[in-house]
């Protein structure tokens, strides 16, 4: 695609979309939103870039390998919080033991877990888009 208007608008939009994703991610405790929605919105920014500037440019900006590692890291972060609470003497995903004050522990646990969800969902959505979009391009890898 070589539409100047689309390219310019996309360039203008991508940064706000990503910031909005971060807002949804870290404001999920206070308003609607959370890891799932934030991850999808972040992925949407990258997918928009991929649609307008081509899948190859998107892969150059955020390569496959990093995303695969991030997808696994997100799930492991979630599971790791559970293991950490077990090591600290609690039950699996019992966030209360993460800090002296159980309520603070809950806050830490929720933020970490939501971050794990956000990273995993964003990486997975981008990778699935890459997988679909790359099929149309013969000499892509």
């Amino acid at each position: 695609m070589n539409h100047t208007l689309l390219r310019t608008m996309t360039q203008l939009l991508i940064a706000p979309i990503m910031v909005f994703a971060l807002y949804v991610q870290f404001h999920g405790d206070f308003g609607p939103g959370g890891g799932f929605q934030a991850g999808v919105i972040f992925a949407a920014a990258v997918i928009l870039y991929g649609i307008v500037f081509g899948i190859r440019a998107a892969k150059k900006a955020i390569p496959d390998g990093i995303l695969r590692a991030m997808a696994a890291f997100g799930v492991l972060l979630y599971g790791g919080v559970g293991v950490a609470t077990m090591l600290l003497g609690g039950r699996y995903l019992e966030y209360g033991v993460l800090a002296h004050d159980p309520v603070h522990g809950q806050h830490y646990g929720i933020i970490l877990v939501e971050l794990g969800v956000g990273i995993a969902v964003a990486s997975v959505m981008i990778l699935i888009f890459y997988a679909f979009a790359s099929r149309g391009e013969p000499d892509d890898r």
């Binding site: 999920g28 997100g74 799930v75 559970g82 995903l93 809950q106 939501e114 997975v124």
Partner: peptide
Amino acid sequence: IDIPNVVTSVLASYRGFDTFGETVVVFTAL
């Protein structure tokens, strides 16, 4: 839990195990 959004406290804390399952489902889809 002391966060204003009860949906988040249910999703991430009371039902944290379910949400972990959902995250793994997303990963499995990938």
